[in-house]
Protein backbone atom coordinates (compact mmCIF):
# COMPACT_ATOMS: atom_id res chain seq x y z
CA UNK A 1 0.00 0.00 0.00
CA UNK A 2 1.36 3.42 -0.93
CA UNK A 3 -0.38 5.37 1.83
CA UNK A 4 -1.71 3.51 4.84
CA UNK A 5 -3.22 5.60 7.61
CA UNK A 6 -4.63 3.77 10.60
CA UNK A 7 -6.63 5.14 13.50
CA UNK A 8 -4.89 8.48 13.69
CA UNK A 9 -5.98 11.12 16.16
CA UNK A 10 -4.83 14.65 16.70
CA UNK A 11 -5.73 17.32 19.22
CA UNK A 12 -4.14 20.77 19.15
CA UNK A 13 -2.99 22.29 22.41
CA UNK A 14 -5.73 24.38 23.96
CA UNK A 15 -8.47 22.97 21.74
CA UNK A 16 -11.68 21.65 23.33
CA UNK A 17 -12.17 18.78 20.91
CA UNK A 18 -9.84 16.63 18.78
CA UNK A 19 -9.38 17.77 15.21
CA UNK A 20 -9.08 14.17 14.05
CA UNK A 21 -10.47 11.06 15.80
CA UNK A 22 -9.66 7.50 14.83
CA UNK A 23 -9.28 8.23 11.14
CA UNK A 24 -8.08 5.49 8.74
CA UNK A 25 -7.52 5.65 5.03
CA UNK A 26 -5.58 3.71 2.36
CA UNK A 27 -4.43 4.72 -1.09
CA UNK A 28 -2.43 2.82 -3.68
CA UNK A 29 -0.38 3.83 -6.71
CA UNK A 30 -2.45 5.06 -9.64
CA UNK A 31 -5.43 5.85 -7.40
CA UNK A 32 -6.88 9.30 -6.79
CA UNK A 33 -8.93 10.22 -3.77
CA UNK A 34 -10.70 13.47 -2.88
CA UNK A 35 -11.06 14.41 0.78
CA UNK A 36 -13.86 16.89 1.30
CA UNK A 37 -15.14 18.74 4.32
CA UNK A 38 -16.14 22.09 5.68
CA UNK A 39 -13.64 24.69 6.79
CA UNK A 40 -12.07 23.61 10.08
CA UNK A 41 -13.06 19.97 9.64
CA UNK A 42 -9.40 18.84 9.86
CA UNK A 43 -8.72 18.23 6.13
CA UNK A 44 -5.44 20.12 6.05
CA UNK A 45 -4.30 18.55 9.34
CA UNK A 46 -4.97 15.13 7.86
CA UNK A 47 -2.93 16.01 4.78
CA UNK A 48 -0.06 17.31 6.91
CA UNK A 49 -0.01 14.03 8.86
CA UNK A 50 -0.01 12.10 5.60
CA UNK A 51 2.97 14.11 4.36
CA UNK A 52 4.95 13.62 7.57
CA UNK A 53 4.87 17.35 8.18
CA UNK A 54 3.22 16.75 11.54
CA UNK A 55 2.92 13.77 13.85
CA UNK A 56 -0.32 12.20 15.13
CA UNK A 57 -1.14 11.81 18.82
CA UNK A 58 -2.29 8.28 18.16
CA UNK A 59 -2.39 5.83 15.25
CA UNK A 60 0.13 5.28 12.44
CA UNK A 61 0.94 6.74 9.06
CA UNK A 62 2.90 4.55 6.63
CA UNK A 63 4.15 5.51 3.19
CA UNK A 64 5.33 2.74 0.93
CA UNK A 65 5.58 0.47 3.96
CA UNK A 66 7.61 2.88 6.07
CA UNK A 67 5.89 3.91 9.30
CA UNK A 68 6.58 7.62 9.74
CA UNK A 69 6.50 7.36 13.52
CA UNK A 70 9.71 5.29 13.38
CA UNK A 71 11.58 8.05 11.57
CA UNK A 72 13.34 11.04 13.06
CA UNK A 73 13.09 14.54 11.64
CA UNK A 74 15.82 13.88 9.07
CA UNK A 75 14.23 10.58 8.03
CA UNK A 76 10.85 12.22 7.46
CA UNK A 77 12.53 15.01 5.48
CA UNK A 78 14.26 12.39 3.31
CA UNK A 79 10.95 10.66 2.70
CA UNK A 80 9.26 13.95 1.72
CA UNK A 81 12.11 14.70 -0.64
CA UNK A 82 12.04 11.38 -2.38
CA UNK A 83 8.52 10.00 -2.22
CA UNK A 84 6.02 12.76 -1.54
CA UNK A 85 4.99 15.70 -3.71
CA UNK A 86 3.07 18.59 -2.17
CA UNK A 87 0.83 21.17 -3.86
CA UNK A 88 -0.40 24.05 -1.67
CA UNK A 89 -3.33 26.41 -2.04
CA UNK A 90 -1.02 29.46 -1.73
CA UNK A 91 1.41 27.86 -4.25
CA UNK A 92 4.31 28.48 -1.82
CA UNK A 93 6.88 28.90 -4.52
CA UNK A 94 10.38 29.94 -3.56
CA UNK A 95 10.40 33.67 -4.27
CA UNK A 96 14.15 33.91 -4.79
CA UNK A 97 14.18 31.36 -7.62
CA UNK A 98 12.74 31.83 -11.10
CA UNK A 99 10.04 29.54 -12.44
CA UNK A 100 12.51 27.18 -14.13
CA UNK A 101 14.56 26.78 -10.96
CA UNK A 102 11.40 26.34 -8.87
CA UNK A 103 10.23 23.52 -11.17
CA UNK A 104 13.57 21.71 -10.94
CA UNK A 105 14.09 22.41 -7.25
CA UNK A 106 12.62 19.35 -5.55
CA UNK A 107 13.83 16.95 -8.25
CA UNK A 108 17.34 18.26 -7.76
CA UNK A 109 17.03 18.01 -3.97
CA UNK A 110 15.97 14.39 -4.39
CA UNK A 111 18.80 13.77 -6.85
CA UNK A 112 16.36 12.86 -9.62
CA UNK A 113 16.62 15.86 -11.87
CA UNK A 114 15.68 15.15 -15.49
CA UNK A 115 15.97 18.28 -17.60
CA UNK A 116 14.00 16.81 -20.49
CA UNK A 117 11.16 15.83 -18.17
CA UNK A 118 11.13 19.28 -16.59
CA UNK A 119 11.01 20.87 -20.04
CA UNK A 120 8.20 18.55 -21.08
CA UNK A 121 6.23 19.39 -17.94
CA UNK A 122 6.73 23.10 -18.50
CA UNK A 123 5.60 22.71 -22.07
CA UNK A 124 2.50 20.69 -21.07
CA UNK A 125 1.60 23.27 -18.44
CA UNK A 126 2.14 26.21 -20.82
CA UNK A 127 5.03 27.56 -18.80
CA UNK A 128 7.81 27.48 -21.37
CA UNK A 129 7.64 31.24 -22.12
CA UNK A 130 7.72 32.06 -18.40
CA UNK A 131 10.63 29.99 -17.12
CA UNK A 132 12.89 33.01 -16.45
CA UNK A 133 10.20 34.88 -14.57
CA UNK A 134 10.11 35.12 -10.79
CA UNK A 135 6.99 34.08 -8.84
CA UNK A 136 5.93 37.67 -8.20
CA UNK A 137 5.88 38.23 -11.97
CA UNK A 138 3.47 35.34 -12.60
CA UNK A 139 -0.34 35.24 -12.36
CA UNK A 140 -2.03 33.01 -9.75
CA UNK A 141 -2.82 30.33 -12.34
CA UNK A 142 0.73 30.36 -13.64
CA UNK A 143 2.13 30.10 -10.13
CA UNK A 144 -0.07 27.08 -9.36
CA UNK A 145 1.01 25.42 -12.60
CA UNK A 146 4.65 25.99 -11.57
CA UNK A 147 3.84 24.39 -8.19
CA UNK A 148 2.32 21.36 -9.94
CA UNK A 149 5.31 21.07 -12.27
CA UNK A 150 7.67 21.30 -9.26
CA UNK A 151 5.81 18.46 -7.57
CA UNK A 152 5.70 16.18 -10.60
CA UNK A 153 9.26 16.93 -11.77
CA UNK A 154 10.54 14.79 -8.91
CA UNK A 155 8.29 11.90 -10.01
CA UNK A 156 6.89 11.35 -6.50
CA UNK A 157 5.03 8.16 -5.72
CA UNK A 158 2.46 10.10 -3.70
CA UNK A 159 1.02 13.53 -4.58
CA UNK A 160 -0.74 15.42 -1.80
CA UNK A 161 -2.63 18.52 -2.88
CA UNK A 162 -4.23 20.98 -0.43
CA UNK A 163 -6.99 23.04 -2.10
CA UNK A 164 -4.81 23.42 -5.22
CA UNK A 165 -7.42 25.50 -7.00
CA UNK A 166 -8.70 27.36 -3.96
CA UNK A 167 -7.03 30.60 -4.95
CA UNK A 168 -7.98 30.44 -8.61
CA UNK A 169 -11.12 31.41 -10.50
CA UNK A 170 -13.36 28.54 -11.61
CA UNK A 171 -12.18 28.29 -15.23
CA UNK A 172 -8.50 28.49 -14.32
CA UNK A 173 -9.04 26.07 -11.45
CA UNK A 174 -10.72 23.55 -13.71
CA UNK A 175 -7.89 23.78 -16.26
CA UNK A 176 -5.23 23.38 -13.58
CA UNK A 177 -7.00 20.37 -12.04
CA UNK A 178 -7.35 18.73 -15.46
CA UNK A 179 -3.61 19.04 -16.01
CA UNK A 180 -2.86 17.74 -12.52
CA UNK A 181 -5.05 14.68 -12.98
CA UNK A 182 -3.62 13.93 -16.43
CA UNK A 183 -0.04 14.18 -15.29
CA UNK A 184 -0.59 12.17 -12.09
CA UNK A 185 -2.22 9.47 -14.17
CA UNK A 186 0.72 9.46 -16.59
CA UNK A 187 3.30 9.12 -13.81
CA UNK A 188 1.30 6.45 -12.01
CA UNK A 189 1.43 8.31 -8.70
CA UNK A 190 -1.25 8.13 -6.04
CA UNK A 191 -3.14 11.41 -5.49
CA UNK A 192 -4.81 12.60 -2.29
CA UNK A 193 -6.56 15.91 -2.90
CA UNK A 194 -8.16 18.03 -0.21
CA UNK A 195 -10.98 20.29 -1.30
CA UNK A 196 -14.21 21.74 0.03
CA UNK A 197 -15.70 21.65 -3.47
CA UNK A 198 -17.84 18.59 -4.21
CA UNK A 199 -17.80 19.58 -7.87
CA UNK A 200 -14.03 19.11 -8.01
CA UNK A 201 -14.14 16.04 -5.79
CA UNK A 202 -16.44 14.34 -8.26
CA UNK A 203 -13.68 14.37 -10.86
CA UNK A 204 -11.51 11.98 -8.78
CA UNK A 205 -11.89 8.21 -8.56
CA UNK A 206 -12.70 8.03 -4.88
CA UNK A 207 -14.13 10.43 -2.37
CA UNK A 208 -14.20 10.60 1.45
CA UNK A 209 -15.84 13.24 3.63
CA UNK A 210 -14.38 14.52 6.84
CA UNK A 211 -16.73 15.94 9.41
CA UNK A 212 -15.98 16.82 13.05
CA UNK A 213 -12.73 14.90 12.81
CA UNK A 214 -14.26 11.65 11.52
CA UNK A 215 -14.22 10.13 8.05
CA UNK A 216 -17.31 9.03 6.15
CA UNK A 217 -17.95 7.81 2.62
Amino acid sequence: MLLDIRNVAKTFAGADAPVLSDVSLALDRGQSLALTGESGSGKSTFLHLAAGLDTPDAGTVAIDGTVLGTLDDAGRARLRRGTVGLVFQQFNLIPSLDAGANIAFQARLAGRHDAAWCAALADRLGLSPHLRKYPEELSGGQQQRVAIARTLAARPALVLADEPTGNLDEATGDAVLTLLLELVAETGAGLLLVTHSTRLADRLEMRRHLSAGRLSQ
Binding site: L53, D73, A74, A77, R78, R81, L86, F88, N92, L109
Partner: peptide, 16 residues
Protein backbone atom coordinates in the same frame (compact mmCIF):
# COMPACT_ATOMS: atom_id res chain seq x y z
CA UNK B 1 8.72 31.55 7.81
CA UNK B 2 6.66 31.79 4.62
CA UNK B 3 9.92 31.51 2.65
CA UNK B 4 11.44 28.72 4.70
CA UNK B 5 8.35 26.58 5.31
CA UNK B 6 8.03 25.40 1.66
CA UNK B 7 11.73 24.43 1.60
CA UNK B 8 11.20 22.51 4.84
CA UNK B 9 8.07 20.89 3.38
CA UNK B 10 9.99 19.92 0.24
CA UNK B 11 12.44 17.91 2.29
CA UNK B 12 14.93 19.91 4.35
CA UNK B 13 15.10 19.55 8.11
CA UNK B 14 14.65 22.55 10.38
CA UNK B 15 18.12 21.94 11.83
CA UNK B 16 19.68 22.10 8.39
Amino acid sequence: QPQLAPVWALGLTRAR
